[in-house]
Design a protein around this nucleic acid. Structure first.
Lengths: 195, 195
DNA sequence: GTGCAAAGCTAATGTTTATTAGCCATGATC
DNA sequence: GATCATGGCTAATAAACATTAGCTTTGCAC
């Protein structure tokens, strides 16, 4: 990993834990193993590091939810759907980079319009576009009753997004939270899926 | 309004806009119309101001969702339910103190366990407890089919909470967001309410 | 009206912070 | 082997910040 990448990595960790204003350039440099002034050989300033992290978050999400989005295998049954989603969610909750990116965005969302937009994409538009697509496929297969896929995507994702945010705040209740998410998914299937 | 209250008011505005670490004691004092050192006649330090704001947020929510909670009138029809909820939401989105409190909590949620808990209460437990109660009453009246009120409360509130958070970030799309919330409420009624 | 507490002020302090200047080592290029 | 860019370092700077010390004013109690 290049120093430039190490800096991003350290900054993501520190920003997610203590916020942008709560993190000093020196702390970042320490974590990388260099002195603060050396950091300026790689980035013009502290703000540029934040911008690079937001760029990376945006790129990551555009890749994930972009035009040629990857919905993966369309499930054949409710049980398969639940299993697949719980796997995806367990990963999303635990993956350090995704988790830190979430925490960074939520804390810095009011710092600029740009960050606000990326946060919205992250919490709402992005995921919903993806799940609307998946639900549309499931409707075509006759697994889910015909309905507005975008609306159903909101109903499906919103509780999960909020519970994942809770898990970031209170990781000690992770197990309980995952159970809540599963209960929600089962309820969703019971309501919208044909038997 | 006493100086002590003016300080809290100014701090809430500034913290919600620029975050705790992004706000200086001098800025708060300026907004109040005093000099920074005078502020210490009222609060022992910057952190104590934050604590007082969190206390106030917690008290406000405990009053709202506490043991003797106020669900208000139980609606008689879906249309009445939607109208009442849209009114409540329009108020919650626009009321300056509630809005700033939300913005403060979301930005500072990782600063302490205490703030994390209040944030969760704010976004999840509190509202859900209240709506579970309301839905239970509606079930008793036969307006909503028998189901787990807590689970249904999650389904009802989560999309609204996320959309309100979006409105805080992007107030220019407020109108569109309120339409989305209404669409969600109508969908909720269509799915769970008896005709 | 004297005493006193509350709440304002200025000045100062000590620390932290982001950033710049300028020097040195290293390792690739010609 | 000279050149030179890259990336590290130390030292320094200038600003911002939270907080303290200590003085003054104000207004109420008696």
């Amino acid at each position: 990993m290049s120093t430039k990448e190490k800096i991003l990595d350290a900054a993501l960790t520190l920003f997610s834990e203590n916020g942008y204003d709560g993190t000093s350039v020196e702390q970042i440099a320490n974590k990388v193993g260099i002195r603060a002034p050396s950091l300026y050989k790689h980035y013009a300033g502290k703000e540029e590091i934040l911008n690079a992290l937001i760029d990376s978050a945006q790129a990551h999400y555009e890749e994930m939810f972009g035009s040629e989005m990857n919905i993966g295998r369309v499930p054949e049954s409710g049980e398969e759907f639940i299993r697949a989603e719980m796997g995806r969610i367990a990963f999303t909750i635990r993956d350090p980079v995704i988790r830190k990116t979430r925490m960074l965005l939520v804390q810095e969302q009011f710092r600029s319009e740009r960050i606000a937009e990326v946060t919205t994409m992250h919490q709402l538009t992005g995921i919903q576009r993806m799940y609307a697509k998946l639900l549309e496929e499931m409707m075509k297969k006759g697994l889910v009753g015909e309905d507005d896929p975008a609306l159903l995507a909101t109903e499906l994702t919103a509780p999960a997004v909020l519970l994942i945010a809770k898990a970031d705040r209170q990781p000690q209740s992770l197990k309980e939270i995952e159970e809540s998410i599963e209960r929600h998914l089962r309820h969703f299937c019971a309501v919208y899926m044909k038997k």
